[in-house]
């Protein structure tokens, strides 16, 4: 029997399977993110974390359509993705973003030839109301003052940490209801990482639901009250921080943390 989606969940993924040609990248993955939650998704390299986010954001379906007829376009997607109770798995990426599910992509991907200010304005494409735009920009500047200081700098010349702040700031400019952040800590020093994760917690405290995908398990578990562990294309464990930390098998096999 199919169970109805929970009304409190903003994102609901059910039985998601993604195959690129003969390689299965996601195998019957199910997860949910409740309204106002900060949920972590951890797992080793190649587990399928980025594929999961790209599928949810509609990018995998787009890739399938744009590469139709070639071997690279031989992509199979099965399962269900619901956002705010409605199915979004057949929608194009820009429509999904317009509904409020916004992806902050892996490796930051700033528009390197544009200034910091223009990057933020490109993110604010959806905002037609000038006052709301001003408010969002003020909020982003307040959260990441460096983006205000370097407003006219070409973003390709920013440091890795600043580029990550810009990527998150640009995603915030779309006024997301669910912000999906993909591996924000890649290539950053421990101090910058810590600062960035504190900012992600702050974003969540401001009322934005966050799905945080990360390889740094310890840091992710420290900020997320609830997390999923993805390994070999499957969800192998999930639960509250203390439950995951208490499970010795999960600890040893998947989290790579020291036993408590």
């Amino acid at each position: 029997m199919v169970t109805p989606p929970e009304a409190s969940n903003l994102l609901e993924v059910r039985g998601l399977t993604v195959c690129y040609d003969t390689a299965m990248l996601l195998n019957n993955v199910s997860l949910s993110v409740g309204r106002g939650e900060l949920v972590g998704l951890v797992g080793p390299n190649g587990a399928g974390k980025t594929t999961l986010l790209r599928t949810v954001a509609g990018l995998v379906r787009w890739e399938k359509q744009s590469k139709q007829g070639t071997r690279a376009g031989n992509i199979t997607i099965a399962g269900e993705v619901r956002f705010d109770g409605e199915r979004i798995d057949s929608l194009p990426p820009h429509v999904i973003a317009r509904r409020g599910l916004v992806l902050c992509p892996e490796r930051r991907r700033p528009f390197t030839e544009l200034t910091v200010a223009d990057n933020l304005m490109a993110g604010a494409y959806l905002q037609k109301d000038r006052r709301a735009l001003r408010e969002t920009l003020d909020m982003v500047h307040q959260m990441f003052p460096v983006l205000k200081q370097r407003a006219r700098q070409i973003s390709g010349t920013l440091s890795g940490g600043e580029q990550q702040m810009l990527a998150i700031g640009r995603a915030l400019m779309t006024r997301p209801r669910l912000l999906c952040v993909d591996e924000p800590s890649t290539g950053l020093s421990p101090l910058v990482k810590k600062e960035l994760f504190a900012k992600i917690s702050e974003i969540n405290r401001r009322g934005i639901t966050v799905l945080l995908v990360e390889q740094d398990t310890a840091l992710t578990l420290s900020v997320c009250a609830r997390s999923y562990v993805l390994s070999h294309s499957r969800i192998v464990a999930s639960g509250a921080r203390q439950d995951l930390l208490a499970d010795q098998t999960v600890h040893r096999s998947y989290l790579g943390l020291q036993s408590p």
Partner: peptide, 24 residues
């Protein structure tokens, strides 16, 4: 203009532009 900014964004990274809600 804003259209020019969108043109720039598409040239640089169409995936990110589309994920930002732009109908590329």
């Amino acid at each position: 203009s804003k259209v020019g900014l969108v043109f720039h964004a598409i040239r640089e990274d169409e995936i990110t532009a589309r994920a930002s809600g732009i109908n590329t």
